[in-house]
Design a binder for these strands. Sequence first.
DNA 1: CGTCTATATGTAACGGGTTACAGGGAGTGA
DNA 2: TCACTCCCTGTAACCCGTTACATATAGACG
Lengths: 327, 327
Amino acid sequence: MSTIRDVAKQASVSVATVSRVINQSGYVHIKTKERVEKVIKQLNYQPNDVARSLYKGRSKMVALLVPDIMNPFFPQLARAVEDVASKYGYTFVLCNTDDEKEKELAYLNALRQKSVDGMIIVSSKLSQEDVSDITTPMIALDRKISIDIDLVTVNNQDGAQQAVRFLMQKGCQRIGHICGPENASSSKARLKGYLDVVKNEPWFSSGYIRSGKYGFEAAFEATKKMLTEHPDIDGLFAANDLMAVGALKAAEQLGYRVPDDLSIIGFDGIGIGKATKPAITTMAQPIYEIGATAAEMLITRIQDTTIPITEKELRVKLIERGSTRVS
Amino acid sequence: MSTIRDVAKQASVSVATVSRVINQSGYVHIKTKERVEKVIKQLNYQPNDVARSLYKGRSKMVALLVPDIMNPFFPQLARAVEDVASKYGYTFVLCNTDDEKEKELAYLNALRQKSVDGMIIVSSKLSQEDVSDITTPMIALDRKISIDIDLVTVNNQDGAQQAVRFLMQKGCQRIGHICGPENASSSKARLKGYLDVVKNEPWFSSGYIRSGKYGFEAAFEATKKMLTEHPDIDGLFAANDLMAVGALKAAEQLGYRVPDDLSIIGFDGIGIGKATKPAITTMAQPIYEIGATAAEMLITRIQDTTIPITEKELRVKLIERGSTRVS
DNA sequence: CGTCTATATGTAACGGGTTACAGGGAGTGA
DNA sequence: TCACTCCCTGTAACCCGTTACATATAGACG
């Protein structure tokens, strides 16, 4: 690998001039510029980003921290963030935290040491104190972390209400909820939305709520238990699609016919919901848009850290498929 | 952010001593060490990785380049690579190339400029010349790039043979193949395996092969066309599970009953194959193991670039589910 | 007591860009 | 001709750890 000094020597100029050519800054005589460019091509010179980062204190990298890369929601999100990042010349780093606070903190540290310019974080575990000493621009996504941090979400509570009302409208009499992790704000909001609608129903009790931890397996087990305890359930609102699929499989195993015996509605709008039979009715999030919005916000903040904290809420949209009754 | 010089000043020692304490190298008096450590804690000093990388020429980062992060195969793989990487103290970078040569080359360059220590690449587009001038350790995964580069694959051709024979054994008379992209070596091997078994069948013609480009949508369309042209097909071997799901949906739409009218077998063993109804029979790859193996190989090579080029082949395993006939 | 070695610590160069600052030439207007 | 402004280019400090090399002290051994 040749360095800027090699180029300078070969072109009989100083490193400053080469730097000016590369960065198109300051004055460089057109003749000189051409000569330098020729040498750069000759030597196949590529500036060393690490050296650049060291001086600038910035690395042209952004990171996305997600709790579960195996949930198709996050690859879709990652895709969006990466697209925007590379549009602005940033390298994208994806980190999987398993929703474990320890891993999150470890990443936060590692990334800061690498002078990462910004991060987008989906975390249920981090709180204000954990991030208060971090000056790197951050965006919280899906789940709130602190009031000091920009946030991108969807109308979770409202969407959940819509989902549950939709089930009722389709004739469901007893509606259970497979909720997400207790401390995720998105999960809490969806639970709240569910409660808003059902808490005054005569049949309602806490047994109609079980946690599936936003995961397939846990939801599968939770659904089996819930349906066994409450065989009268004829509607199920899962806080995400992955759990809705788990619920579907559980219902199937118990001999329920979906949607005739049991209507299931999910949340997220991931692709897998179309693959099942019946396909999953869902409150779809504009996943790509969420990721892209967060990424744009992050880059805006990187460029100007003084702008006021903002919260942006996108809207979910009902997609009716086969897992809910027709009438 | 405090620097090593701040620590040195505060602890009344030189930066060299602080460095020795941090890296546990050379001689440091126990008393001095304690003093320095105390100051480090006081100032919450974290060494700057960028400066370290610059001097060392290494960054403690490894990258994984995948063609399609939305295919669940790759998140699973990424998961494995990340686990191994972080076990050895490496930061993991995920890059999505859309299977486009241009993006691949752009990443290769960007990563080199960042002094990334090693890369694992899943690419059908890169050839020997494209990577010949790259000295960064690399591992090719799933698809061969060059004889100069370590390779991790599975017994694709053999697995494909097994898959097709399995369909025959279940009584299929006419077996079609939805293949992957033309230039991916894994795709070519699976096609070859298919041909090994069927090419001498009296019914066989090239119309029994169509490309689904390893993607859901393309496979959906390809299957519809193929089944329309050859309604006699009663068995389908898709070169990956994502395409198998696409094929299943297409068959459904055309009124085929799976597996009664049509048996479908996939390849990969991704989770989504369990979510469909019927669930997809597949030649499962040990995905996590593949990723972990590649990552281990990469780190071995980073530590010693002189070791001879190796190719490692893992084995696929048939998982019988509902998409293939019982007898 | 002189020499040698193990221990302990500091100085400064180094890695490779970036940029503040200085210096010099050319052109313009007074 | 002087003053001033563009141009153009170079020198050297800087970003922040790492480490080769130099220096120094203490204890061991002959």
